[in-house]
Design a protein around this nucleic acid. Structure first.
Lengths: 355, 355
DNA sequence: AGCGATCGTTAAAACGTTTTAACATTTCGA
DNA sequence: TCGAAATGTTAAAACGTTTTAACGATCGCT
């Protein structure tokens, strides 16, 4: 078998910093410094080195680099699932900002399972990454706090920061940054909109005690009712998680009784619930907004197609902010930071004026 | 300042394999072998080591491990964007299968830009990862082949395999695996369905010469027409990329002429196009399927909400297969492999029988 | 009792980079 | 022309692991 002659820049072989150094006739230290660009080397050697790098198509080995002390330029995002629009949009923001700051993005999914979340955090810990961004809430209350505190400390041990997205803040002793949207404000706006349109019997979908994202919306809903002097009725607060099927199921069950519905409007705690509820309403022969008005929460893809009035959340901005906060040096010291992003109502065609 | 006494398992400090070794009274080699589980060590020492590991909350440093020769357990996926349902679902599959095989998943987005794709590949190359999975097609034809060939070789140099998802296969000399869906078959089924319902003037949306994903659908569309003895009319093949706005734009433009539409059905090359086209149709006072029948391609989230008959693609399976192929040892040697996944028609309510 | 096997363990080298401290070389002021 | 300062370069140590080859102890067998 005949070897190809020399094959100088075939690009397919490994190529280490030593090879670059040899080819350029300098030491590896010089190559390293020139590539890092942090020292005034002589232009002549600089050129020789750069040429060698190009010819060998050399890229540094991240692992060696990291071992030698340079921090890994990467962040991780951990979400329930990638196909849920909410998480997808946050992930998009994280990915975009990470890229903008020259970072690689690792991703993991939990499927909403706390044990898988833990496994993911462990996996990220091994990577000695700059930051881990946790989105979505798997556990409630005390269990949540305890676990996050453990995460934060063990990640800190690996030199990683912890950022929580859309989760309640932790104590001041826990090294974690929190970034959220103003869920309560958004829910207040949504409910107020329905009240202003004359609705008083407003069904709300997605109650889930102990989970901030749900609790905050419920609070906004009740605040709005109170502000309009309408007493709140627990019978109208339906419990369930945030999936489309749940919306369908809850509404179907509510309508099963056969008699005319005892509400004129629905506030769903996210757009998926709204889409599911809408399907159940239509199947039951009720028109939206003709018979029942509907407001969602999120302003994500299904919303436009079903012409849904909803609360816009800055999902991508949430992700971007998380990365920015994670990498900002001033966040490193000082007390654990907390950021709240604004929301606003997007009016489409799913609400009808009555009364 | 008083130090806390000892703080043995505070979990917050770094903890290396040496510390574990010291605490267990053995050498680092023993710890390493026990953790790898690949040698019959004495149960007694084994227990001591495991206890030390637990007490120190030790996790190995991936970078050191990788440097020392153990391959990094991770794969990367590079997509156009995370919020596009198609890519999101493939990514979900990749992530799921990666997790199932104990791999971490890196993710990068290109925004459809070839230069960003290149930058991403370079970034992945530094990571010395097991495989890089490229989804979606940014370039056409010769330019595509040339670039992929370069990717494949340079990734091979870093010990990574290249997997192409939904892209045309390359030559046998290029070390890359290809996994696709049967786009042509799916398009054939979709078009045949419309033809069987009596439609002969079928508008198709999403022509894009040079891009396999589009070309293959067009081929299936034409094949079906031919099989039914209907001559194909280039006037009915509208060009455009695969975004929702494009569907809206194309249909709006087509309807602008004012006169009655010269088609009775529409076959959109993906569901987003279908959703956009549907919106334009509705705004123009045409009902679906009353006036115009509509078939999509993908069977992704918008489809269900707009009650769209469409071709189901196994998106998640695509991602899973990509990972499986990338990690399968038998794929390593042998000729570059190619896999084709089946599709099927999902009938909903957007097609009306005529004639 | 003595001798190989067998078993469990370890010292040390290696992986590819960064960085520190030291070493040449040149430049410059006197 | 001399020495000091500035500049450019390098040798070597360090990072945290895996692995190879060698080691000592224990065991069973004659």
């Amino acid at each position: 078998m005949v070897r190809k002659a020399k094959e100088p820049n075939e690009g397919a072989r490994k190529s280490t910093i030593r090879e670059v150094a040899e080819r350029a006739g300098v030491s590896t230290a010089t190559v390293s410094r020139i590539l890092a660009g942090n020292y005034p080397d002589a232009p002549a050697t600089r050129d020789r080195v750069m040429r060698a790098v190009r010819e060998l198509d050399y890229v540094a080995n991240v692992h060696a680099r990291s071992l030698a002390g340079t921090p890994t330029k990467s962040v991780a995002i951990i979400v329930n699932s990638v196909i849920s629009p909410h998480y997808a949009h946050v992930a998009q923001g994280v990915q975009a900002q990470a890229a903008a700051e020259g970072r690689l993005c690792l991703i993991g999914t939990t499927g909403g399972d706390a044990e898988r979340e833990l496994a993911m955090v462990q996996l990220m810990r091994e990577q000695h990454i700059e930051a881990v961004i946790l989105v979505g809430n798997v556990l409630a209350d005390e269990e949540y706090r305890a676990r996050m505190s453990r995460y934060a400390h063990s990640l800190a041990g690996a030199g990683s920061r912890l950022v929580l997205c859309g989760r309640p803040p932790l104590g001041p002793d826990v090294p974690a940054v929190v970034v959220q949207c103003d869920y309560t404000g958004g829910a207040f706006a949504a409910t107020s909109h329905l009240l202003s349109a004359g609705h008083e019997r407003i069904l709300c979908l997605g109650r889930r005690p102990g989970f901030t994202t749900a609790d905050a919306r419920l609070a906004g809903y009740r605040d709005a009712l109170r502000a309009h002097g309408v007493p709140h009725d627990k019978e109208l607060e339906l419990e369930g998680t945030f999936e489309r099927e749940q919306g369908y199921r809850m509404m179907r069950q509510r309508l099963k009784s056969g008699r005319r519905p005892d509400f004129t409007a629905v506030f769903a705690f996210n757009d998926l619930l709204a889409a599911g509820a809408r399907q159940a309403l239509l199947e039951h022969g009720l028109r939206v907004p003709g018979d029942v008005s509907l407001v969602g929460f999120d302003d994500l893809p299904p919303a436009q197609d079903i012409d849904l009035t909803t609360v816009h959340l800055p999902h991508e901005e949430l992700g971007r902010t998380a990365v920015r906060l994670a990498l900002e040096p001033e966040t490193q010291a000082g007390p654990p930071q907390q950021v709240l992003l604004d929301t606003h109502l997007v009016k489409r065609g799913s609400v009808r004026q009555i009364g």
